[in-house]
Computed example of a mutant assay.
Amino acid sequence: MTTPSRPDTARNASPYLYGTELEAVSQVLADGQYGHTAVTEQFEQEIARYLGVPDAVAVTSGTAALHCALLAAGVGAGDEVVVPSMTFCATVQAVRAVGAIPRFVEVNPDTLCVEPDAVLAALTGRTRAVLPVLYGGRAVDLGAANDTLHERGIAVIEDAAHAFGSRLNHLRVGATGALTCFSFGPIKNLTCGQGGAVIPRTSAEARKLRGLRMLGVVQSQAERQATTGYTVDGFGLRYQLSAINAAIGLAQLRRFAEAEKTRRELWCAYRDALRPVDGVTLVDVNVSHSVPHLCVVRVRRREQVFRLMKERGIAVGVHYPPNHLQEAFKPWYRPLPVTEQVGEEILSLPFHQHLTVAEVHHVAASLADAVAQAQAGGAQ
């Protein structure tokens, strides 16, 4: 009799490819033009069409998108940016890259996203932007804060690195009026291998962003090839998305409905499997409106549970250690008791499109055992 194979939950998340990416990249390589080309511009157009917005500006990464968006919004030295501490450090490093000051705020412990009242309470006379993080793929609705932010000229710049494809009510994230930044990194909902995009609010902002991502040069590649010169109209960086990466993104976008379906099904499988487990709280991503990027739980005695899960060969992680406790951001420390508490409890479960529902159930059962073992050990 054959022994059933053990579910492969030890592997870390890796890009999920559909098979068409290789042909798309091969075509770019055969064409011999690897920089920002018409392929990049086609990717921008198709992203904009998918989101239902007039324009999208592709860049090299989600961090580059945040950096460019902050610059385009006029955020600079000495300005304050309201930002949750519960995010990847890239969010805060982008704030520091423009010389601005992070003003850390609490998150809702059930969603790990900021709430309007926390944002309003954090505003000062120096606040120039609010940077909500769409944690795990959940859209953030600042609701009652929006009128105040608009009246005070404070930009809303969304870190939507986790949230490509998600919705706020009936609108896709990116189409809700904020200056939205996406990541198309290796393991994001949609990957370019490496890449990102900014969704501008106006045509003037789109032009500004295109200059910023191309060393201040405002002409497209086709326009530059048709003349003997080009114009540099301001500061810029080398943040343009290569045709190779754009080709991967185009292939991914054409299959994105599959990613959306699979990610929702896997998250719901975790939700159902974990519902009866004592001592485990699932962080809510509002799955009916989201394309989930993470599956995160809160557990007591997290360090013991983490170790026990690793011993069982399950690739758990922590997203993220709170930034206001990091040495690099110590000058801007504020006490955030909710964030500090959840920072000691959060545990990311394996979540990627290579998973099967059977593997999800294996992870959930292992987590139940690990939590029970950790609690029993703590009671001794």
Rank of each mutant, 00 (worst) to 15 (best):
M1P: 08
S5L: 15
R6G: 01
N12P: 05
S14C: 11
Y16G: 11
Y16H: 14
G19Y: 08
G19D: 02
Q27D: 11
L29R: 12
G32T: 02
Y34P: 02
H36F: 12
A38Y: 05
F43N: 02
I47Y: 05
A56D: 03
A56P: 05
A56V: 09
A58E: 03
A58C: 13
A65W: 10
A65M: 11
V81H: 01
P84E: 02
M86W: 11
M86S: 05
T87L: 12
F88M: 11
F88N: 11
V92P: 00
A97P: 07
V98M: 06
A100Y: 05
E106V: 13
P109N: 07
C113F: 07
C113T: 15
E115M: 13
E115R: 11
P116M: 11
A118T: 08
A122M: 10
G125D: 09
T127Q: 07
R128T: 01
V130I: 06
L131V: 04
P132E: 00
P132T: 00
Y135S: 03
G137P: 04
G137A: 08
G137V: 03
R138L: 04
R138M: 03
H150Y: 08
E158G: 05
N169A: 15
H170L: 14
G174V: 06
T176Q: 14
G177L: 09
L179W: 06
T180R: 07
S183Y: 04
G185K: 11
G185I: 06
P186A: 14
P186Q: 11
L190A: 10
L190K: 03
T191I: 10
G193R: 12
G193I: 06
G195K: 08
G196D: 00
V198Q: 03
I199V: 14
A204L: 14
L209K: 04
R213C: 09
R213I: 14
A222R: 13
E223S: 14
A226I: 04
G229S: 15
T231N: 11
V232W: 10
G234R: 14
F235G: 05
F235W: 09
Y239H: 12
I248L: 13
L250T: 01
A251M: 12
E258D: 14
A259N: 12
R263L: 14
L266H: 02
A269S: 04
V287W: 08
H289L: 15
H293P: 00
V296F: 01
V296I: 12
F306E: 01
L308S: 05
E311S: 12
P321T: 04
H324N: 03
Q326D: 13
A328N: 07
A328P: 00
P331I: 10
L336P: 00
E340Y: 09
E345Y: 02
I346K: 03
P350E: 03
L355K: 09
V360E: 01
V363Y: 01
V363C: 06
A364E: 00
S366C: 13
S366I: 02
A370W: 00
A374T: 00
Q375H: 09
